[in-house]
């Protein structure tokens, strides 16, 4: 693997893309800004002193994508065909998730544009909210996917909760379930938070054979399962509502989910 922005002498070098074929290019980047729950609430209520925070950050992100070449020394100026910025306000994690999509018909990738858009949108969110919260933290700015170009497509894999299958008597994740075991389901927002919909866990892993024991065993597996101890998290065993003291037995289906919002 060679770094394209260095020449044979190791000097900075702007790549000549004149001979490259024009292809459809697309990149998605994401990032997040963590903040106090109170700040997030003020933002959701539109009660921050600088006005509409998300609308401002969106425009900032779009502008930044278009001006990436002015900021990053060896980037080419690109006539982007599309820039879209999306926000997801996450009250449970206490953050705003930012994603940026950039598109181009051209000779060079647009991931720097997408990453710049996310970075500047996050910085703008910081600026818009800093009057009430100085603890905010911008993190996890990363490329999610890119399409087009000679090096082919890229898609970030979600971090696996546990790699591989457990050996006999160990925890195994996924649909395989060796008795005695319980199948665990995560629904709606909880599924997105945990990053998967189904887990099977051997009953012998549970410190106690009840829902509390199941939560403890899962939390031991991965910190992401810590959300199960949240007071809002509800539980059903074999599709009947249950609580922490409800007994869990072999072959049970245990579902965890947030408060219901139908109707």
């Amino acid at each position: 693997m060679q770094l394209t922005h260095l020449n044979t002498h190791g000097e900075a070098n702007m790549v000549d893309v004149g001979d490259k074929r024009e292809t459809r290019r697309e990149a998605v980047a994401s990032g997040r800004i963590m903040m106090q729950p109170e700040t997030l609430q003020l933002l959701s209520d539109g009660a921050l002193p600088k006005g509409d925070v998300l609308a401002t950050a969106r425009i900032a992100g779009i502008q930044a994508a278009k001006r990436t070449h002015e900021l990053i020394p060896l980037c080419h100026a690109l006539a982007l065909s599309k820039v879209a910025i999306d926000f997801e306000v996450d009250h449970v994690e206490g953050c705003i998730k930012v994603s940026a999509l950039c598109k181009l018909n051209g000779r060079t990738g647009v991931e720097m544009e997408a990453l710049t858009a996310v970075s500047v949108a996050c910085l703008t969110l910081y600026d818009m909210c800093k009057a009430v919260d100085k603890e905010m933290r911008i993190e996890a700015v990363q490329l999610e996917s890119k399409r087009g170009g000679v090096r082919g497509d890229y898609q970030r894999e979600p971090a696996p909760i546990v790699t591989g299958e457990g050996s006999a008597g160990e925890v195994s994740l996924g649909v395989r379930c060796v008795s005695p075991c319980v199948r665990v389901k995560f629904l709606a927002e909880l599924r997105e938070r945990v990053g998967q919909s189904d887990v099977a866990i051997n009953l012998d892993q549970l410190p106690s054979r009840d829902v509390a024991g199941l939560k403890a065993a899962l939390a031991q597996l991965d910190t992401r399962f810590g959300v199960l101890s949240d007071q809002r998290t509800l539980c059903a065993i074999n599709q009947v509502m249950a609580n922490d003291t409800s007994r869990v037995t072999d072959e049970d289906e245990v579902a965890f989910f947030p408060p219901v919002t139908g109707g």
Binding site: L187, A188, E189, A236, F257, P258, V260, T261, G262, G263
Partner: peptide
């Protein structure tokens, strides 16, 4: 229904 049936809106 609104408080017990397992539906979730996004």
């Amino acid at each position: 229904l609104k408080t017990q049936a397992p539906f979730w809106k996004k």
